Amino acid sequence: MSGFKVVIPARYASTRLPGKPLLDIAGKPMIAHVCERALAADAAQVVVATDDRRIFDTVSALGIQVAMTDPDHQSGTERIAEVAEKLGWQPDDIVVNLQGDEPLIPPAYIRDVAAALAGQQQAGIATLAAKIHDADEIFNPNAVKVVLDKNGYALYFSRAPIPWNRASFPEHHVIGDETHPHFRHIGMYAYTVGFLRRYCSWPASPLEGVESLEQLRILWHGEKVLVNIVEQTPEAGVDTEEDLWRVALSLGQV
């Protein structure tokens, strides 16, 4: 898969870690590690989208393309759509949304989600999921679950334990077998530029407000989401000081 683009939304504001994209990990800012992952995925173009001059200047000094975007955007998806318009990308161009706090994301996953979208015609968006092997994860509301149809398109996303195994829950918490596995959603997306334009024209849906899951807007408005299954859930991104230390350990730099 070649020819896809990666946009990395990066905001300075963060409740728990202000200036998160610029925090040092193993001698360089976190955003530099994320950009390296995107470049290692062989993307045709990598762009950081930010609303902060400090991030803009840091990324520019790295030699990575960066775009200033409207500070009033409500989501990274809206920020990516603005970049696509500014750079004149075409409706069929594929764009991967790579979060700026994911310095450990496997480059293969970036390629996988882009290739999955390119390999079908029914959906304008693709995402990733991995099979759940830990029963406690099914009941963890911070682990978003997804249920698929027979062709690999999402039926629903939820923080609840779906599908509900009537024979095993809640007393035994038995992991589903191959006939009804549980999948954890991985929040990486590939879109066509045409889909991004449609998405940004839609109002928020009641379901996404209830679950606090933006992707439910897509299902609410009647469009498909392709879900590509990968081998395992990647390591979590950076939200706390402890996460910074964990990521440095993973990179073998501590």
Results as ranks from 00 to 15, higher is better:
residue 67 A to W: 01
residue 68 M to S: 09
residue 69 T to Y: 00
residue 72 D to I: 08
residue 73 H to T: 06
residue 74 Q to I: 05
residue 75 S to F: 09
residue 75 S to M: 06
residue 76 G to N: 14
residue 77 T to Y: 08
residue 77 T to N: 03
residue 77 T to S: 09
residue 78 E to K: 04
residue 80 I to D: 02
residue 80 I to S: 04
residue 80 I to V: 13
residue 81 A to K: 03
residue 82 E to F: 05
residue 83 V to T: 03
residue 83 V to A: 03
residue 83 V to W: 05
residue 84 A to C: 15
residue 86 K to E: 08
residue 88 G to M: 03
residue 93 D to A: 03
residue 93 D to G: 00
residue 94 I to C: 04
residue 97 N to H: 11
residue 99 Q to L: 11
residue 99 Q to H: 07
residue 99 Q to S: 10
residue 103 P to A: 01
residue 104 L to K: 02
residue 105 I to P: 00
residue 107 P to A: 07
residue 108 A to Q: 07
residue 110 I to A: 07
residue 114 A to C: 05
residue 116 A to R: 09
residue 117 L to T: 08
residue 118 A to I: 00
residue 118 A to C: 01
residue 119 G to E: 10
residue 120 Q to M: 05
residue 124 G to C: 01
residue 126 A to E: 11
residue 126 A to H: 08
residue 128 L to I: 03
residue 128 L to E: 06
residue 129 A to Q: 04
residue 130 A to Y: 12
residue 133 H to N: 12
residue 135 A to M: 05
residue 137 E to R: 05
residue 138 I to E: 01
residue 139 F to H: 06
residue 140 N to A: 02
residue 140 N to D: 14
residue 140 N to L: 00
residue 141 P to T: 09
residue 142 N to V: 02
residue 144 V to Y: 11
residue 145 K to Y: 03
residue 146 V to Y: 13
residue 146 V to R: 10
residue 147 V to E: 15
residue 148 L to Q: 07
residue 148 L to W: 07
residue 148 L to E: 07
residue 151 N to G: 07
residue 154 A to K: 08
residue 154 A to V: 06
residue 157 F to R: 10
residue 161 P to A: 12
residue 162 I to Q: 14
residue 165 N to W: 08
residue 167 A to E: 14
residue 169 F to S: 09
